[in-house]
Amino acid sequence: MADTNKQGFLEELFAPVAGFGVTFATMFRKVATEEYPEEKRPTQLRFHGRHQLNRHPDGLEKCVGCELCAWACPADAILVEGADNDDASGQRFSPGERYGRVYQINYLRCIFCGLCIEACPTRALTMTNEYELADNNRADLIFTKDQLLAPLQSGMVPAPHPMVQGMDEKDYYKGKVTGATTEQEEWVRAHHSDDDADASGAPADEGKTA
């Protein structure tokens, strides 16, 4: 009987400490915490991050201002305003008739579902792996066209500029254009200046309304 009482006493004495067994055991294991933002885990290839408006190999924009992405968006986060390309005044930003004059995505509303990507008929809109979109200002989370437009790559010249001579809109989407021609480069040097509107085709001081 005495042994039984002694065993029960010991169980009651160490019962509160036994609950910390898991805690004590993990104290000596290797820490698995990631040191973010110093160390960033790479995302998956199909990760849905910040959007990007793509260009053709010569620098013209793929967006034709059709607004299908805005119609497909379930969160009403996209604002698109199309306009006509005008070769007479040198205002050609994309192959074909129209381009996206205004393009905004409100990341306060966006749910990163990717439906806008599926709706785009020209593959102008894709999603990158960039996920660091937090900010302390709501207005800064409304991205405009100049922020979404893909940077110029080697062989590209900034729009507006004429299409490749002898090519039409179909040739662009068939991949026959591989880069800017000498004629396009000369045209850009002759017509672009620091006082022009930015390469997105929208005035630099255009307000955010999305």
Rank of each mutant, 00 (worst) to 15 (best):
A159V: 00
F143T: 00
M156P: 06
L125C: 02
Y107K: 07
Y131F: 06
T122W: 13
G96A: 09
R101T: 02
A124S: 07
A83K: 11
I142E: 06
I142G: 12
C69R: 08
C120Y: 04
M163F: 10
Y107E: 10
N85E: 07
P95I: 01
E132M: 06
T126R: 13
R109C: 03
L108N: 15
F143Y: 13
L125E: 05
G82R: 02
C66D: 15
A119P: 09
L152I: 12
L133H: 00
Q91T: 00
A150T: 12
A77S: 06
L148T: 07
R123T: 14
R92S: 04
A119Y: 05
P160S: 10
W71C: 10
A150N: 11
T128C: 09
L68T: 01
I78W: 07
L115P: 03
Y131C: 00
D84G: 13
D58M: 04
D87K: 13
G82N: 06
V80K: 07
C66Q: 11
F93C: 03
L152N: 15
R101Y: 13
E81Y: 05
N106F: 09
I105R: 10
Y99H: 15
P160M: 05
W71G: 14
G155W: 09
R109T: 06
G65N: 04
A139M: 13
V80T: 13
V64L: 05
V102Q: 15
A77K: 02
H56E: 02
A72S: 11
L108S: 12
D86K: 01
D76M: 09
D84H: 05
S89T: 08
Y99F: 15
D140V: 00
G82L: 00
Y103N: 06
V164L: 15
L152V: 06
Y103M: 00
E61M: 14
V102A: 14
A134G: 13
I142N: 12
D86T: 01
I142F: 12
M156W: 11
Q104E: 14
T126H: 11
E81H: 05
Q104I: 04
F112K: 09
A119I: 06
N106D: 15
F143N: 10
G65A: 02
L141S: 08
L79P: 01
K145C: 09
Q104V: 00
L68W: 08
G155A: 08
P74W: 09
G90V: 00
L133I: 01
D58Q: 04
C113W: 02
E130R: 03
Q104M: 04
A150P: 09
C69I: 07
W71N: 13
A88Q: 11
S94D: 10
N106A: 12
Y131K: 00
F93L: 00
A75P: 03
L79M: 03
D87A: 14
V64Y: 07
G155V: 01
H161V: 03
T144I: 01
M156F: 09
